[in-house]
Amino acid sequence: MTSLRVDALTVRLGDADILRGVDISASDGELLAVVGPSGCGKTTLLRTIAGLVRAASGDIRLGTRLVATHGIHLRPERRGIGWVPQDATLFPHLTVAQNVAFGMPGSSGRRSPRRRRALDPEVGRVLALVGLDGFAERMPSQLSGGQAQRVSLARALASRPALVLLDEPFAALDPLLRHELRESVPAWLREEGVTAVLVTHDQEEALSLADRVAVMRDGRVLQEDAPAIVFGLPATAWVAGFVGDAVFLDGQWHEDVVDTVLGRLPAQWAEHHVAGDVAAPAAGTAVTVMLRPEQLGVTSDAEGVGVVRRARFTGHSALLEIGLAGGAILHARVASPAATPPGTRVRVDVGGSALAYRPADDEGVRATG
């Protein structure tokens, strides 16, 4: 197993900084998920770790090996990294076994022809690992999308890499196959003891699969932590809104409570918990308050503070859109919308604590929502 550590990584294209002082790490055998909006630098980060892009500054370590730093840029083929792209780019004229063998050391050239390496026991082992032990002689044209993606993963694992990089490998699959591979791929990686970095635009995928999650924006990592902490104690209001459904309200801070349109709520100063040296603001300071829709209880009440505007059924639950006095809107997740149809005036109760941040307008996040 091999750990990954990236320190102060900066990548420039022309005059633009694509990555700006990025710090991430993954311990031996961990799966690190990197999420962020399109264009934030996720794929550039992967390509730089792989050695396909040269860093302007910063360090990249694989275990004890320094593979990139000032004056050092180890070539991609010497880094021992496996790559699984979004689309399974298999050689159409080679069998499944030959495609897998292509990724093995010495798979080309006179020393070990591809066809001989396709008979290697290691090929059979990794095909069995990904559930394709009966597919060795099939051609790529005979595979489904999910099977082709598993071959791509087997090829990456066959080289016994120090690290596997997965660039949105499930994005092009239908929901059933995506669910299947989301379950199996992390299990295969952990069975092999392989450290991995998964880039995805799907926050649910990242939170459910990874040991750690890094959230990127504009070439920077805003937070890296365990999924439960990234979701439960987001470092900023923007991170809170990106990693899950969130309700943002204006508020005033008063020690351990905030005054909001929903009344006085118990609250935590989120930035203190994430970066312990950030002190809470003075009493009366304007803040942004974040709640999760699951924290809101909704009850029909003629004297309530809001009116249900619409209900959106999502299968296992429903999301109610509730209009409040002054034009504010919030969303509450309920088991069934039947008791509070659109037009119903409701009382909104809050369970648990709110999180308070500096005003969200500073980050481009709506202060009401």
Score class of each variant (00 low, 15 high):
Thr10Asn: 02
Thr10Leu: 01
Gly14Glu: 04
Arg20Ile: 04
Gly21Arg: 11
Ile24Gln: 04
Ala26Leu: 09
Asp28Lys: 10
Leu31Trp: 14
Ala33Lys: 03
Thr44Trp: 12
Ala50Ile: 03
Leu52Gln: 10
Val53Phe: 08
Arg54Tyr: 15
Asp59Pro: 00
Leu62Ser: 05
Leu66Asp: 11
Thr69Arg: 15
Gly71Cys: 04
Arg79Val: 00
Ile81Lys: 08
Val84Phe: 12
Pro85Asp: 09
Asp87Leu: 03
Gln98Val: 00
Asn99His: 07
Ala101Lys: 07
Met104Glu: 13
Pro105Ile: 07
Arg110Thr: 08
Arg116Trp: 13
Arg117His: 11
Leu119Cys: 06
Glu122Leu: 11
Val123Leu: 09
Leu127Glu: 14
Ala128Pro: 00
Leu129Val: 01
Val130Phe: 06
Gly131Phe: 11
Leu132His: 08
Ala136Gly: 08
Glu137Asp: 15
Pro140Lys: 10
Pro140Trp: 13
Gln149Thr: 02
Arg150Tyr: 11
Val151Arg: 06
Ser152His: 03
Leu153Val: 06
Ala154Lys: 11
Ala158Val: 06
Leu163Ser: 02
Asp167Tyr: 05
Ala171Leu: 07
Ala172His: 13
Asp174Ile: 06
Pro175Ala: 05
Arg178Pro: 00
Ser184Ala: 11
Glu192Asp: 09
Gly193Ser: 08
Leu198Asp: 04
His201Ser: 02
Gln203Glu: 09
Gln203Tyr: 12
Arg212Tyr: 07
Gly219His: 10
Leu222Val: 02
Leu222Lys: 12
Leu222Arg: 05
Gln223Trp: 15
Glu224Pro: 01
Glu224Tyr: 09
Ala226Trp: 14
Ile229Arg: 15
Ala235Trp: 08
Ala237Phe: 12
Val239Tyr: 12
Phe242Leu: 02
Phe242Ala: 07
Val243Trp: 14
Leu249Val: 00
Gly251Pro: 05
His254Glu: 14
Val257Pro: 00
Asp259Cys: 01
Thr260Arg: 12
Thr260Met: 10
Leu262Ser: 06
Gly263Lys: 10
Ala270Phe: 14
Glu271Trp: 03
His272Pro: 00
His273Ile: 03
Gly276Ser: 08
Gly276Asn: 07
Val278Arg: 14
Val278His: 07
Ala280His: 01
Ala282Leu: 09
Gly284Gln: 13
Thr285Gly: 09
Val287Leu: 06
Arg292Asn: 01
Leu296Met: 12
Leu296His: 15
Gly297Leu: 12
Ala302Tyr: 08
Glu303Val: 00
Gly304Ala: 00
Val305Thr: 06
Gly306Met: 05
Gly306Tyr: 12
Val307Thr: 11
Val308His: 10
Ala311Asp: 02
Arg312Asp: 14
His316Lys: 07
Ser317Thr: 07
Ser317Gly: 10
Ala318Ser: 13
Glu321Val: 04
Gly323Trp: 09
Leu324Phe: 02
Ala325Cys: 01
Ala325Glu: 11
Ala328His: 07
His331Phe: 12
Arg333Phe: 14
Ser336Cys: 11
Ser336Met: 06
Ala339Asp: 15
Thr340Pro: 05
Pro341Val: 04
Pro341Gly: 08
Pro342Tyr: 04
Arg345Met: 03
Val346Gln: 13
Val346His: 10
Val348Lys: 07
Val350Pro: 03
Gly351Phe: 05
Gly352Tyr: 12
Tyr357Gln: 03
Pro359Met: 00
Ala360Gln: 09
Gly364Tyr: 11
Gly364Asn: 13
Gly369His: 12
